[in-house]
């Protein structure tokens, strides 16, 4: 239980913080693509008997490098490309596992994870990753913000926006791939998308947005674990449901706050 708690908190904190970048770049579905691609990598590794974490990480990083900064053409939007990538990787995952022994059990494991069976080595990996992401945030927050807020102006001023954007995307890709196998694709995507959404609704500064998103990402999976333990619920879906409730509460709070300030 302690290991599961540490894994959940570490993953949730990392994904919650990084999800803010996806939200403010309006590419939340990039998180879904990354989670789906990393799941596909894990499925291929499972079927082939390769090291799961490594293949999942490689595919996750590949997707992060390929789709994070893609320029939409006049005929196909970024959302469409991401929709294609999600459809392709998620169907490929099911097809790959369909041919493997114990396919449906593996599919469920990859989609929803099984954080209660997490191993010490995996927890250490997640905690190290969380520490690395926090360090990167502390060191390079200004650069990440520059390429997120107005990449063109930053490029004109001499910032290598392609490099920094790639670095940010790879960080998100690595965090996603590391989390997918422990907490599942659904929870991983939810932790990327929902804490940042809730945070943007209730905060009025970028710093507090990151803090609230990180806090929600860390606390909600812990509450979900408690719910799973005491109410005998599946931890992953419980986590997603609690995050969805947090977004709903934030929306109500935001509207009430807007009405108060408008009155």
């Amino acid at each position: 239980m302690r290991l599961a708690l540490a894994a959940s908190v570490a993953s949730g904190l990392t994904l919650g913080v990084l999800g803010v970048y996806l939200a403010i770049r309006r590419i939340v579905f990039f998180g879904l693509v990354l989670a789906s691609a990393a799941t596909f990598g894990a499925a291929v590794a499972e079927a082939m008997g390769w090291p799961r974490a490594l293949v999942s990480l490689a595919v996750g990083l590949g997707a992060a490098a390929s789709f994070g900064d893609v320029d939409a053409s006049t005929r196909v939007s970024n959302e469409s490309l991401m929709g294609w990538a999600y459809a392709a990787t998620s169907s490929a995952t099911v097809l790959v596992l369909a041919g493997a022994a114990g396919g449906s059990a593996d599919t469920l494991q990859l989609l929803f994870g099984n954080v209660l069976s997490v191993q010490r080595a995996q927890v250490i990996l997640l905690v190290v990753l969380a520490a690395a992401v926090s360090a990167l945030q502390l060191l390079f927050a200004q650069r990440f913000l520059l390429v997120t807020f107005d990449a063109q102006a930053a490029k004109v001023a001499g910032v290598n926006t392609r490099l920094w954007s790639l670095g940010l995307n790879l960080t998100i890709g690595a965090a996603t791939a590391a989390a997918v196998y422990e907490i599942g694709a659904l929870s991983t995507f939810a932790l990327l998308a929902l804490p940042s959404m809730a945070a943007l609704l209730v905060t009025s500064s970028l710093r507090s947005t990151f803090v609230v998103a990180g806090a929600l990402g860390a606390v909600v999976p812990a509450l979900a674990l408690a719910a799973a333990f005491y109410l005998d619920l599946p931890a992953g879906p419980a986590c997603v449901a609690l995050l969805a409730i947090a977004v709903a509460i934030s929306t109500v709070w935001n509207r009430a706050s807007s009405r108060r300030s408008g009155a």
């Binding site: 309006r26 650069r143 807020f149 063109q152 943007l200 009025s204 970028l206």
Partner: peptide, 23 residues
């Protein structure tokens, strides 16, 4: 219009970005 106002930054923080880009 090209600047996305979803980012909760103050006017001062926006201006500080102009300095950060050169640092």
């Amino acid at each position: 219009e090209r600047i996305d106002v979803i980012v909760p930054v103050t006017a001062l923080e926006v201006v500080e970005m102009g300095l950060a880009a050169r640092a």
